[in-house]
Nucleic acid binder design. Structure first.
Lengths: 138, 138
DNA sequence: GCCCATAGTATCGGAAATGATACCATCATG
DNA sequence: CATGATGGTATCATTTCCGATACTATGGGC
């Protein structure tokens, strides 16, 4: 998270991809957003859904999401404290991305590395002309 | 990149999101995939499209994408060397994600932090009951 | 007076990601 | 015989991420 951010998103064609990715990057942000799509949640409620996150990290990630305008942090002046986190309109606009991630994950439950056969674009390497060799990296 | 990977993607509801994110995480992978959607590219061709990537990083990211079964690395036994990178079927299955990222980025060219008004789900916090306070974090 | 709950902060340290730089092999060309 | 092109490696330093742990404030209940 919090890599040096791009100033603008239109430096080059693929730049928007990279910049957007950076916004939801950071080990927990995607999941946090995912849970917030279900509705407003209190701090500890989020924590319960992410059994392995530390308090420190949850705070940090939420602060960044807030900073980026994705979540709204609402503090109720009570004791003990009560803080609710909800998505902003901008936050909800990420839904297609998060859901695409979720969908892909659900459809690829196993980490299959089915190194499938090359599907060539017909203009490239007219097949069996150069004796291409598959990577020997591993 | 290369965070400790999840063994399976179905540990908890949001887990698929997190795990999928990890696969395309790593500062350059998203952009690399994006460019490969246009077609097969040689090593230096990719490099030209990513002016700031170091050779070391490009190699590393491509190796990981290959390891995860997203790209196919084809070596032609020529001199000087010729290595082509193309997407596998599995790699192409990421297209909805990458394109969702690109779309969002294009539609949010400016980093507007329009901390907009809370859109409440009607069952939560019946409005103006507790004197909610907006975050004072910054 | 002590403990509990909530939502944090502060500090430290290790691990991981990334950047900078230099080096390498091979053949073709001049 | 030096140089260039391509696609890398190897090594080192730095930056960033992230986990573990301890600490804090407040008011209520026992």
């Amino acid at each position: 998270m919090a890599r040096i951010r791009h100033k603008s998103l239109n430096c080059s064609p693929g730049c928007a991809v990279e910049a957007t990715l950076q916004l939801i990057d950071g080990k927990w942000k995607g999941v946090i957003l995912y849970h917030l799509f279900e509705g407003t949640l209190r701090f500890n409620a989020i924590r319960k859904r992410l059994p392995n996150i530390t308090q420190r990290m949850l705070t940090a990630q939420l602060r960044e999401l807030e900073h980026d305008g994705f979540v709204l942090r609402t503090v109720y002046p009570e004791v003990p404290p009560k803080v609710e986190y909800s998505l902003t309109v901008r936050g909800r606009s990420l839904e297609p991305i998060i859901m695409a991630l979720k969908k892909w994950g659900d459809e690829n439950t196993e980490f299959r590395h089915d190194r499938d056969i090359r599907i060539d674009q017909d203009e490239v390497c007219p097949a069996a002309q150069s004796p291409a060799i598959k990577s020997t990296t591993e």
